[in-house]
Nucleic acid binder design. Structure first.
Lengths: 195, 195
DNA sequence: TGCGGCCGACCGACTGGTCGGTATGATTGA
DNA sequence: TCAATCATACCGACCAGTCGGTCGGCCGCA
């Protein structure tokens, strides 16, 4: 059943979130899902398979969400990266300041990738073509795709800092940076001030 | 002896580089250093101690190198981030295009941090004050420190992509992005074109 | 009665860490 | 002066526990 598979994938990510990717063992995932180890192995015959599953699942989920947001964004410039930003920081479009920080799909994908790098680097291979396609689409859509790509890099950098705990979650500095990134997606290549 | 300690730290990083941080076991590090496990434990009484050692060692090394470069950079604006960029991509200041990619101190620090996150997240705590200081210094030096910080985030994002293999190492796109980042450090907040 | 989904005890390899020991060289003391 | 003593650097067999993965079997349903 697909529901059981999804439950297991979510449990795996939950373990990574709470205890770090070093603690993501098959036993831990099975226990978090309320399933026996055999049950887990039934759906994912190896740890590699489980991590690949995470990569596919959250990768596709993120891509789907991005496409949805692109479809309703009236401003063509920087739509793709802006979608990413809105998914990562939902409070941005609500117009509010607070970030109650329910885990976004961007962080989920980030965690899945880092976990994969720890388990078996070869699992990351499928990501490469995915990234290449994403970049190609950006060069199709945007006049200054390089600029958008740089904004994307900054978002990923922010994910990294958040993951490492280098940036306090409720820091006003972070909020200012994010708003600025948002402005950057709208007005390349001259930018830097509020929109 | 400090020399043996340094050798062990370098060996640990070598293991991480070649086989991934999931393969960094005490036995592997000892073997890479040509030392027995007991010898390794003599200098680093636990795995946590070893990883903390890496964090300190490469963190200080990177900071020292940054300060050196800042001291000889005539342009005050964005010196700190520009130093980072030059360390990460040494071919930038040579004026050449190729990147023979000898491992930079920036990547070394990146690998140490990711490894620490996998072994024991608490080991990252000392990094927080270090990062806070770095940010404070940037707000002291730069009129638009936020902009510099954003460039820094983008550099870290690029480290991440490189680590995950998402960006082909010899891609001309990467080179263009890096040159643009370099330009960004010099002319905030209006920027985006070549220097 | 047969069968597929799931269970969980079990396995061998490996992990971080311990410990008794050795080699070397400096320090002491009669 | 030269043993006896101590400190340091290092060794590697060993231990208890954990890991990913296997497998024989149970159970509900057809």
């Amino acid at each position: 059943m697909a529901a059981s598979r999804d439950l297991l994938l979510n449990s795996a990510l939950q373990v990574v979130t709470h205890d770090g990717f070093g603690a993501m063992t098959l036993d831990a995932v099975a226990k978090a899902a309320g399933v026996s180890k055999g049950g887990l192995i039934h759906y994912f015959p190896s740890k590699d398979a489980l991590v690949s599953g995470m990569l596919d699942f959250y990768g596709e989920q993120l891509e789907r969400e991005i496409e949805q947001r692109i479809a309703v964004d009236p401003l063509p410039t920087g739509r793709r990266v802006r979608a990413m930003l809105h998914i990562a920081f939902p409070w941005l479009e609500a117009g509010e300041a607070a970030q109650p920080a329910e885990q976004s799909d961007v962080i989920r994908m980030f965690l899945a990738m880092i976990t994969a790098a720890g388990v078996n680097r070869e699992l990351l291979a499928p990501l490469r073509s995915r990234a290449r396609k994403m970049i190609a689409r950006m060069f199709n859509d945007d006049a200054d795709a390089e600029w958008q790509l740089m904004t994307w890099l900054a978002i990923d950098g922010m994910m990294l800092w958040q993951f490492l705990g280098l940036l306090p979650p409720a820091d006003p500095l972070q909020e200012r940076l994010i708003r600025r990134l948002h402005a950057m997606t709208k007005m390349p290549p001259v930018c830097g001030e509020e929109a």
